[in-house]
């Protein structure tokens, strides 16, 4: 298992944290990716990437107006910029003494803590733990593109589960989402439509499952 380091923590609270990294970093996590920070050896906080933000650093406005730009200038802007790429992460659970909880972390991570990409095994373990309690942290957030984050997460996690030999995980998680949202017609339909657009539920797959 190779651990992939993404960036360092800029700020945090109990519900979410902000991580900064270099723009050119090869392994920028995708929307919906499960990540973690390990403040202590027996304590890890899991989060879901819900937004990626590349801020304007002042110089880029001047460069954008240049008609012909050298590739080295673009590379320089991305590598040596002073403002990092920001990754916004929603806290969805934690692990303490080996046990996973789909609760908010008891203590938020501190500044400059390293953010790590979860491996497929960790994704399977975390999403299989309990009864999809981590979904409620996503569904509660009003200010994020919740349905898109869910769809992206489903697509990524489903791949991990499928590789681990579990082809029914997606069915279980979608049904749980329906249960959680069944009193909220508008949001449920939006979530289902987003999910319908993922590779998991493309028409071909559906026909095969039939």
């Amino acid at each position: 298992m190779t651990e992939i380091k993404i960036g360092r923590l800029l700020s945090s609270n109990s519900r979410q944290f902000l991580v900064g990294c270099r723009v050119a970093q090869a392994d920028i996590p995708a929307l919906g990716t499960l990540v973690r920070v390990n403040p202590q050896s027996n304590y890890a906080i899991f989060g879901l990437v819900y937004d990626l933000y590349i801020a304007d650093d002042g110089l880029v406005r001047q460069l954008a107006t240049v008609e012909e730009m050298d590739e080295s200038v673009i590379a320089d802007h991305r590598i040596n910029r002073s403002v990092p790429l920001e990754i916004r992460v929603l806290a969805v659970g934690y692990q303490e003494d080996g046990k996973i909880y789909h609760l908010l972390p008891p203590r938020p991570p501190l500044g400059l803590e390293l953010l790590w990409l979860c491996t497929d095994e960790e994704v399977v373990e975390f999403t299989n733990s309990g009864r999809f309690g981590y979904l409620r942290h996503i569904l509660r957030e009003q200010d994020i593109a919740m349905e898109e984050v869910l769809a992206a997460h489903l697509q990524l996690a489903e791949r991990a589960h499928r590789q681990a030999g579990d082809i029914h995980w997606s069915s279980r998680v979608v049904q749980e989402m329906i249960v959680l949202l069944r009193d909220d017609y508008t949001n449920l339909i939006r979530v289902l439509q987003s999910i319908a657009d993922t590779q998991v539920f493309s028409e071909n797959d559906w026909e095969n499952q039939l």
Partner: peptide, 11 residues
Amino acid sequence: ARLPGELAHWL
């Protein structure tokens, strides 16, 4: 008509 059959079925 708007969702894949399986999703509609679960819904």
